[in-house]
Design a protein around this nucleic acid. Structure first.
Length: 423
RNA sequence: GUGGAUGUAGCUCAGUUGGUUAGAGCACCAGGUUGUGGCCCUGGGGGUCGUGGGUUCGAGUCCCAUCUUCCACCCCA
């Protein structure tokens, strides 16, 4: 137990963490180019925020939250998603009083008490964006295009973008009723889960993966059949913009975001080949959420992408990551007399902005060379008492094996010169 | 939360019908004569056989429980 991490968590170790850093770097650049500012919210919040903000009837709230009482007897929950905290911060800091729209992004760990499997963990990471303050369907399109842009920047291909409109508070009740009418007559064909859903959230039946339910809902009315004129024109505009942006999509009338405050656009991106948990991102418009959280009636839209699943897909598609830079130079000492001088020299090189390191295990020169070879350092500077006397070091190019004496005062510049040539 | 599989050195695995000090390859460390890596050779360290019970004269091998990971379901990222 002492040496075992909690279930569904993972250590991101050297060798792997560079991939994360690369991914994060691409994300941050993307966000800057799209005009988004980062927001960092707490990793835990008051439980009510998620109960209200995510929805009491969702699986997340009903069975997946990490909730506990703190020492002040407050109910605290490790954040299971990023939208509700962003809304909370937007309201708490009155960002709606500043210039609109407010475009935010976040990146960090989320927590859900699920049963782990490939691509699903109890602590996982999401990158997400939220835009507050605009109804413009162009924002819907931009947000979708931005997500797709990230995937393509990472080199991912063969992704499926599904998009739908789930209506608004005006047309959804109509659809709800139509769906309830439709399914009431074929209750016997629905799975127990969906029978339960009929009363609470009939839209979700369309989303059920149970064979019988898929069959039963084949001719069921979908949101697109009962959209109000405003919703229809909004959705048509989003699709038109996507076409203009060259983003390929599939209208999926079964795609549902089950929460009450979700409105209009809903979308999801799937990656084939990474297992059953193949959704690598999803989002939609939530024009009712800010108000539901006690704020003014301000529209919003956003998405969240799963970082583990993106990395999984990249690996599955054989995408190579840029090689992280290692040391510029390794300083090897040829005899113990040079130790003190080596320490000072390495420190000087670092001050000059070079990545430099040396041996700390009292190894023989041979062993130090071997070690440097394993680290794949391009240059090794060798310092012995002979060199020390003459104020030079032997600088060895590890790729070619050629070696040259460099005066100590020129060493930094010489290394920089050679590294520049390689880079 | 439900069902199925898995678990032997850091990694990939072997381990005969239960029977002596549990092995290999790779990795790690050290040597292969005087201050020099990548190949090769030699040697070394490292395993409470996931954990806890049980059966047995004897268990890595059989039984039970538990944990982990994996796969699927539910659902999502």
């Amino acid at each position: 137990m002492l040496t075992t991490r909690p279930r569904g968590t993972s250590d991101i170790l050297p060798g792997q963490v560079e991939k994360w850093q690369y991914l994060e770097q691409v994300i941050r650049r993307l966000c800057r180019e799209y005009g988004y500012s980062e927001i960092r919210t707490p990793i835990f919040e008051h439980t009510e925020l998620f109960e209200r903000g995510v929805g009491e009837t969702t699986d997340i709230v009903e069975k997946e939250m990490y909730t506990f009482r703190d020492r002040g007897d407050r109910s605290i929950t490790l954040r299971p998603e990023g939208t509700a905290p962003a809304v909370r911060a937007y309201l708490e800091s009155r960002l709606f009083a500043g210039p609109q729209p407010v475009k935010l992004y976040y990146i960090g760990p989320m927590f859900r008490y699920d049963r782990p499997q490939a691509g699903r963990y109890r602590q996982f990471h999401q990158f997400g964006v939220e835009v507050f303050g605009s109804h413009d369907p162009a924002v819907d399109a931009e947000v979708v295009a931005m997500a797709m842009d990230l995937y393509s920047r990472l080199g991912l291909s063969d992704l499926e973008l599904h998009i739908n409109s789930v209506g608004c508070p005006r047309c959804r009740p109509v659809l709800r009723e139509k769906l309830q009418d439709f399914f009431r007559s074929r209750l016997d064909k629905l799975c127990p889960n969906c029978r339960d859903r009929l009363g609470r959230n009939p839209l979700r039946i369309l989303d059920c993966k149970e064979k019988s339910c898929i069959q039963a809902s084949e001719d069921a009315p979908t949101s697109l059949d009962y959209l109000c004129p405003e919703c229809t024109s909004h959705f048509q505009a989003v699709l038109k913009y996507l076409e203009e942006l060259g983003v390929a999509y599939t209208v999926d009338r079964r795609l549902v975001r089950g929460l009450d405050y979700y409105t209009h656009t809903a979308f999801e991106i799937m990656a084939p080949g990474i297992g059953a948990q193949n959704s690598i991102g999803g989002g939609g418009r939530y024009n009712g959420l800010v108000e539901a959280c006690g704020g003014p009636a301000i529209p919003g839209i956003g998405y969240a992408l799963g970082l583990e699943r993106i990395l999984l897909t990249m690996e599955q598609q054989g995408i190579s990551f840029p090689r992280p830079p290692g040391l510029d130079v390794f300083l090897a000492t040829a005899d113990p007399a040079a130790q003190g001088q080596a320490m000072v020299l390495v420190q000087e090189l670092r001050r000059e902005g070079l990545a430099a390191d040396r041996d700390y295990l009292g190894r023989s020169l041979k062993a130090q060379m071997k070690y440097a070879g394993k680290l794949e350092v391009g240059l090794v500077a060798i310092l012995g008492s002979d060199e020390l006397k003459r104020g030079v070091v032997a600088l060895r190019d590890m790729a070619t094996g050629s070696q040259e004496e460099i005066p100590l005062d020129r060493l930094g510049d010489e290394i920089k010169r050679r590294c520049a040539g390689i880079k």
